[in-house]
Simulated assay, not measured.
Amino acid sequence: MPSILQERPPPSGRAAAPITDGQRSTTEQALVVAFMALPLLALAAAVPLAWGWGLTWLDIGLAAGFYVISGLGVTVGFHRYFTHGSFKANRPLRIALAVAGSLALQGGVTDWVADHRRHHAYSDKEGDPHSPWLFGSGPVALARGFWHSHMGWLLERDKTNARRFAPDLLADRDIVRVNSAFIWLTVASLGLPALIGGLATWSFWGALTALFWAGLVRVALLHHVTWSINSICHMVGDRPFAARDRSANVWWLAVLSFGESWHNLHHADPTCARHGVKRGQIDISARVVWAFEKFGWVTSVRWPTQRRLERLTKDA
Rank of each mutant, 00 (worst) to 15 (best):
D158K: 14
D168P: 09
F182S: 13
A166R: 08
R173W: 12
S149W: 09
G152H: 03
T160A: 10
S180A: 15
V178T: 06
V178S: 04
R164K: 15
E156P: 00
R173Y: 06
A162W: 08
H148K: 12
V176S: 01
H150R: 00
E156G: 10
L169S: 02
L154Y: 05
N161A: 06
S180H: 11
G152T: 00
A171W: 01
W153E: 05
E156R: 10
N179R: 07
I175V: 13
R164Y: 11
S149V: 02
L169Y: 00
T160M: 05
A162T: 13
N179C: 05
I175K: 01
L170N: 11
H148F: 14
I175W: 06
T160V: 15
L169D: 00
R157N: 09
R177Q: 08
A171V: 04
V176Y: 07
D168M: 09
M151L: 15
I175F: 10
A181E: 06
M151W: 12
N161W: 10
L155T: 13
F165W: 03
H150D: 01
A162H: 13
V176G: 02
H148G: 05
N179H: 12
D174P: 01
H148E: 09
N161F: 11
F182Y: 15
W153T: 04
A181R: 09
V178I: 15
D172V: 02
T160F: 01
D158G: 11
G152A: 01
L154A: 08
A181V: 02
E156V: 08
L169Q: 01
T160D: 00
I175Y: 09
R163G: 05
P167A: 06
H150I: 05
R157P: 07
A162D: 11
S149D: 03
L154G: 10
R173L: 08
A181M: 14
A162F: 06
L155R: 08
K159Q: 14
V178R: 02
R157K: 12
P167Q: 07
L155M: 15
H150G: 03
H148W: 13
V176N: 05
A166P: 03
S180D: 15
A181Q: 10
R163A: 14
N179I: 06
H148Q: 12
G152R: 02
R177E: 06
G152L: 01
L155C: 11
R164L: 14
E156Y: 09
